[in-house]
C-alpha cells in the first residue's frame, strides 16, 4: 500500500507542479496562439493531477484540496526538475522566462509521461489503469505539441539552436529525477503497479536519441543526472517552497471553508 501511494504521489505531484509552472506563463507565451494551446495543456495537466489526488483520497489520504495545498515541501514527490522556476523575475513582475527551457522540459517530460502511462495502462491496480487510459487520450496531443516546438526550434536560427542546446544540457542534468521511481521502486515493480524504471528509462533514452538524430543534434553525453536532489525522497529546492506558497496563498487563509 505504501508503495502504491508513493507511486501515485509521484504522478500527482509531477503533473501538479509542472502545470503550476505552466500556468505562470499565461499571457506571456511567444504568441497568442501558443498562449491558447499552452494554457489548454496546463489545464489538462492540472486535471490529471486532480484525478491522481482523488485516487489518493480513495486510498485514505487527505481530501484532494488539502493534499494539494497543505502539504509541507518534503512531502512532495515530484521530480526537482519540474519545480524549477521558468526563469528570473516573477509571473507578475518582470518575468524573464526561458521558452527554450520550457520547450525542452515539457517535451522531455511528455515523452516520459507517455511511456509511463503506457506502462500504467497495464498496472495491476485497476483504478490507476483507468485513469491512465483517460489521461493518454489528452497526452497524445501534448506530446505532439511539444515535439513540433522542439523540432522547429532545434532546426532554425543559430540563436534558437544555441538556446535549445543550453536548455537541453540543463534539463539533462536533472532529468534523472524524473526517471527514478524512488526508494519504493522495488515494491512497485514487484506488485506490478508499473514496469521496471530501467525499462522505462531505456524506452525514453531511445525515443530522445531518435528525435535528436532526426534533427542532426548530438546525443547528450552520459546518463541524465539528479544534480539538485531526489524529489522522490522528498528532497526539494526553495523553488518548490515558493511554488507552494503561491498556489496555496488564498487556500491557507482558511482551509476549513468553502471557496
Amino acid at each position: 500500500m505504501k508503495a502504491l501511494k508513493e507511486l501515485i504521489y509521484q504522478l500527482a505531484d509531477d503533473d501538479f507542479i509542472l502545470a503550476y509552472r505552466g500556468s505562470e506563463w499565461l499571457g506571456l507565451a511567444p504568441h497568442i496562439e501558443e498562449d491558447v494551446a499552452f494554457s489548454s495543456i496546463n489545464q489538462d495537466m492540472m486535471g490529471h493531477a486532480t484525478m491522481y489526488f482523488q485516487l489518493l483520497e480513495a486510498l485514505g489520504e487527505q481530501e484532494a484540496d488539502q493534499n494539494a495545498h497543505l502539504r509541507a515541501p518534503e512531502a512532495f514527490r515530484n521530480a526537482v526538475l519540474l519545480e524549477e522556476v521558468n526563469g528570473t523575475g516573477s509571473y507578475l513582475h518582470q518575468p524573464n522566462y526561458d521558452w527554450a527551457f520550457t520547450v525542452v522540459r515539457n517535451y522531455f517530460y511528455s515523452v516520459h509521461k507517455k511511456i509511463r502511462l503506457d506502462s500504467l495502462r497495464l498496472s495491476s491496480y485497476e483504478p490507476l489503469r483507468n485513469v491512465a487510459k483517460k489521461i493518454l487520450m489528452e497526452q497524445q496531443y501534448h506530446l505532439m505539441h511539444w515535439e513540433v516546438w522542439f523540432r522547429q526550434l532545434l532546426t532554425s536560427t543559430d540563436e534558437a539552436k544555441r538556446r535549445m542546446t543550453e536548455a537541453m544540457v540543463k534539463v539533462w542534468a536533472s532529468f534523472g529525477g524524473v526517471l527514478t521511481l524512488g526508494p519504493y521502486y522495488g515494491e512497485m515493480v514487484k506488485a506490478n503497479f508499473i514496469d521496471d524504471e530501467n525499462v522505462l528509462k531505456t524506452r525514453w533514452m531511445s525515443a530522445i536519441k531518435k528525435v535528436l538524430n532526426e534533427t542532426n543534434t548530438n546525443m547528450l553525453p552520459g546518463e541524465p543526472g539528479m544534480t539538485s536532489g531526489n524529489g522522490r525522497k522528498g528532497e526539494h529546492t526553495t523553488d518548490l517552497q515558493q511554488a507552494i506558497a503561491t498556489l496555496a496563498e488564498v487556500y491557507v487563509t482558511n482551509p476549513a471553508v468553502s471557496w
Binding site: S23, D65, Y251
Partner: peptide, 25 residues
C-alpha cells in the same frame, strides 16, 4: 492571470485556467 496560480481549490484552479484561456482565444 494574477489569480490563476493562486486559485483556492483544484476545482477553482481548473475553472479559472479554462476561463482565462478562453479570453486569450
Amino acid at each position: 492571470k494574477e489569480w490563476v496560480p493562486k486559485a483556492p481549490s483544484l476545482h477553482r484552479k481548473l475553472a479559472i485556467m479554462a476561463k482565462v484561456q478562453d479570453e486569450m482565444g
